[in-house]
């Protein structure tokens, strides 16, 4: 282990300790809420990254998994009184099943076509749910507040428990990412992404590994959806199935750095910070300034730093190592 790796490990540990202690030190509700938003966004970015980053299949319809997670747990809680913890697992399972169902035909498509197919599927599901009376259609579902406490995942007095749930989900997603990346599946992912034709000629069953990626990604995204539903206690198609949400999920990973473990976390931090600050400076209603800044950043990142922020940091790291005449690190390992 060289010095830089050591520094990175210590830094990581420090960040984790600060994160764990954050709600104890900072008690302002707005700041805690801000931190929760970052953690939730980061978790979604990490989940998207498993499919979009590691397996290289760009999804522009991830809101469909998020929505399935939110709707499954909410319907089960509102109509059957089932605990959202179980609802979260049920939502994840249904989202995974749905992911396999759409992945199987769609993985034959390449590049733009796959992205557009996911966009279309998400839009269709949004229309269907909006017109589905059993799940209250366009009106949305209000969640019962009676079951307050950890068992019912409803916290009315302080938002702090949501912070820890979000942090837990993020750590779980990072762990799943890490395990997939380091296992033999991770090597297949890279093969699929870098050179699908060569991978196929070596006898790798591309479809199977892409299905692993989409199932894992969908499960984690759906868990995030359940958390959102429990935090807001209200969901409707516009808040958990919207096309703009799919874009935001993808953007978090892209901004931070696609295909890196912590890139999406950095992306979430930057994106949510920008969102909140533009909202506070310019106000949120109808000015469009947040969209201008948001869109401008996307264009600039796409044009000048396709590797996202993590890509930039990775370049600096390689430059630093090169100066120290240390071993060459391959690109893609980022921060």
């Amino acid at each position: 282990m060289d010095r830089l790796t050591l520094v990175k490990r210590i830094l990581g540990l420090a960040v984790l300790i600060v994160a764990l202690g954050f709600p104890l030190i900072v008690t302002q509700p707005t700041m805690v809420n801000f931190a929760i938003l970052i953690l939730m966004a980061a978790q979604l970015g990490v989940a998207w990254n498993i499919l979009g980053g590691y397996a290289g299949q760009v999804s522009l319809g991830h809101a469909v998994f998020y929505g399935i997670g939110a709707y499954t747990s909410s319907v089960l809680a509102a109509k059957f009184g089932l605990s959202p913890w179980l609802g979260m697992l049920a939502g994840g399972a249904i989202a995974s099943g749905f992911a396999l169902l759409i992945g199987w035909p769609c993985f034959r498509l390449k590049g733009h076509y796959f992205a557009m197919a996911t966009l279309a599927i998400a839009a269709i599901v949004e229309v269907l749910v909006t017109n589905w009376d059993y799940v209250e259609g366009a009106i949305g579902i209000y969640l019962p507040m009676t079951n307050s406490g950890w068992a019912g995942m409803v916290f009315t007095r302080s938002k702090t428990p949501y912070f820890y749930i979000a942090l837990g989900l993020l750590l779980l997603s990072l762990l799943v990412s890490r395990i997939l990346q380091k296992s033999y599946i991770g090597y297949y992912f890279r093969a699929i992404k870098e050179d699908p034709d060569a991978a196929r000629s070596l006898g790798i069953n591309l479809a199977r590994y892409k299905l692993v990626a989409i199932a894992a990604s969908a499960f984690l995204t759906a868990m995030g959806g359940t958390l959102y539903a429990q935090k807001e206690l209200f969901i409707d198609p516009g808040s958990v199935l919207a096309g703009s949400l799919s874009i935001k999920i993808a953007l978090i990973a892209i901004l931070g750095g696609v295909g890196t473990l912590f890139g999406p976390v950095v992306g979430a931090l930057v994106l949510i910070a920008i969102e909140e600050f533009t909202r506070q400076i310019f106000g949120s209603t109808g000015m469009g300034t947040d969209m201008i800044i948001y869109g401008g950043i996307i264009v600039i990142i796409a044009m000048f730093s396709p590797g996202g922020i993590a890509g930039l940091l990775g370049e600096w790291e390689r430059a630093w190592r090169a100066r120290r005449k240390l071993v060459y690190t391959p690109p893609g390992d980022g921060i």
Binding site: L60, A250, M287, G295, I298, I301, A302
Partner: peptide, 20 residues
Amino acid sequence: LSQIFATFGMMILLRGLAQF
């Protein structure tokens, strides 16, 4: 991915500008 997001960002940017 960069190509998709470049035009995508433009979409959001132009909508924002029109709204502004």
